[in-house]
């Protein structure tokens, strides 16, 4: 007799597994084992990956960053206990939806900035001081954090922002007013600036 795994498969396995995986995510959270929860959401700037630790939102990633690679680096930098568990991201996803719909100007979410250190984190913490619809140059941001000569380092801090959109590095432009680089690509940066531009 030939015994093959198919003998023990069932046409409804995909449904069963999807239910079991949901149950696993809830159980993991209840037992304090959900070190990194993530989900993905559609947005006008492409599919976004959202990830959160128990402390708060830790990562927002654009498609162009390659979500598989982002998850691998979260696994390496924070913990390999990474599960798709949308529930922890409900509030973040809702606020982002409101933002993209023009209904929200400020994010009110617990954040976990543990992916960045030192001066970069200092810069990223200051980004929300640039209000909705406003822009600053890299030099102005350097002045804002009290280190006017660190223009280049401000650029690096923006380029390595683990929480784009939520920490608005898209509001930092080159001195001549052109958008400059962006973690989500120049197209995404222009779109966010257009979204925030007064009608």
């Amino acid at each position: 007799m030939t015994m093959s795994p198919d003998h023990f498969a069932s046409p409804s396995d995909a449904d069963t597994l999807s239910r079991l995986r949901d149950r696993l995510a809830l159980g993991a959270d209840a037992e304090g084992l959900l070190d990194v929860a993530y989900t993905t959401m559609d947005s006008p700037v492409g599919t976004l990956l959202l990830a959160a630790t128990p402390k708060g939102l830790v990562r927002v990633a654009y498609d162009v960053e390659d979500h598989d690679r982002v998850l691998e680096s979260l696994s390496r930098q924070i913990s390999p206990r990474v599960l798709r568990a949308p529930r922890r991201l409900d509030a973040a996803a809702r606020e982002l939806d409101e933002y993209f719909g023009g209904q929200r100007r400020v994010f009110d979410l617990p954040l976990d900035l543990s992916l960045s250190k030192g001066f970069r984190q200092l810069v990223q913490r200051h980004l929300p001081q640039i209000g909705y619809g406003q822009t600053r140059s890299y030099r102005q941001v350097a002045e804002l954090v009290g280190n006017p000569r660190a223009v280049r380092a401000v650029g690096t801090a923006c380029a390595t922002n683990p929480l784009p959109v939520v920490l608005p590095c898209h509001r930092v432009l080159k001195a001549d007013g052109t958008p400059g680089g962006y973690v989500g690509g120049p197209h995404a940066k222009r779109m966010l600036l257009r979204l925030e531009a007064p009608a």
Binding site: L17, L20, L71, S75, P80, V82, L83
Partner: peptide, 18 residues
């Protein structure tokens, strides 16, 4: 390098169920 746990569930969840 250690994979995100979600990958393990995706790759081996079906086998473990059977």
């Amino acid at each position: 390098m250690k994979q995100p746990f979600e990958k393990l569930v995706a790759q081996h969840g079906g086998t473990v169920l059977r």
